[in-house]
């Protein structure tokens, strides 16, 4: 139990810390590296919750797929110009006020719901056949949403192919 708590705080700190660093870095490649770290730490929390399938999907899709494309595009950008650019539209006051309101809201929500923090342990069968459970849920309860999402992705893919072809003609 002790080990589990330690691991949780390790991953949580890593996720939050690198998220902060990701926002504050001026070098966009460094920011991308910290974003990857955040995603990996989140994956670690998924693994601790015994959601093995989500853990792997987080690694495969976000850390392994999407972020590789991000980094690929970022490397094409001339970083020197971006590094020296001066922000001409500073909005510290508005941003600060909004962030304060949001923080108060989150804290209030936490305070109000503090008695419901103790969740029951997940049933053992869920961890045993995690992939099957996710598949069952996706293809029975949420089949409509699943199909809508897949059609959306298909349309996006066809659009990408059409846009890629146009240049060749």
């Amino acid at each position: 139990m002790m080990l589990a708590k330690l691991l949780f705080y390790f991953f949580a700190l890593l996720a939050v810390g690198s998220a902060v660093l990701m926002v504050t870095r001026r070098n966009i490649v460094h920011a991308a590296v910290f974003l990857v770290t955040t995603l990996l730490a989140t994956a670690g929390i998924f693994l601790q919750l015994e959601a093995e399938f989500l853990f792997v999907v987080q690694l495969l899709v976000y850390a392994g797929g999407i972020m590789v494309l991000f980094v690929f595009v970022i490397m094409l950008v001339n970083l020197d110009i971006e590094m020296r650019a001066v922000r001409f539209n500073k909005q510290w006051t508005v941003a600060g006020a909004l962030a304060f309101v949001l923080a108060m809201q989150v804290l209030t929500a936490l305070w109000v719901g503090r008695k419901t923090f103790h969740l029951p342990a997940a049933p053992a069968a869920l961890a045993e056949r995690n992939t099957e459970t996710v598949a069952d849920a996706l293809f029975s309860h949420f089949v409509l949403a699943f199909e809508v999402a897949s059609i959306l992705l298909l349309v996006a893919m066809i659009g990408a192919v059409v846009m890629g072809k146009r240049r060749a003609e």
Binding site: V56, L59, A127
Partner: peptide, 20 residues
Amino acid sequence: NVGLLFIVAVSSLGIYGVVL
């Protein structure tokens, strides 16, 4: 339970070493 996917996912992370 997801061993194969795990291996595929983790070995695809190695690309960061090369790219970075």
